[in-house]
């Protein structure tokens, strides 16, 4: 199997040069961002456990829909 930058480089839908450095940075960030997501989910669960329910965030679309 090819490693990631290679698959994205041969994807015909992509007409921009994504930039090697920009891809590498994202792959490195992916790990950190994933930790962030897990932590947030975990934290929400803990808060829910102690009854501190946070209201679900509104769909950002909604407030822009009205005329």
């Amino acid at each position: 199997m090819l490693s990631l930058p290679a698959t994205i480089l041969i994807n015909p839908a992509q007409y921009l040069d994504p930039g090697t450095g920009s891809l590498v940075l994202q792959l490195l960030l992916a790990a950190i961002l994933a930790i962030g997501v897990v932590t947030r989910v975990f934290w929400k669960k803990i808060k829910a456990l102690f009854g501190k329910d946070t209201p679900a965030a509104a769909d950002p679309d909604d407030d822009e829909d009205e005329e």
Binding site: L4, N11, L16, P18, S22
Partner: peptide, 8 residues
């Protein structure tokens, strides 16, 4: 699995 090609 692919990163965002338009990030840059």
């Amino acid at each position: 699995g692919e990163p965002w090609a338009a990030y840059r």
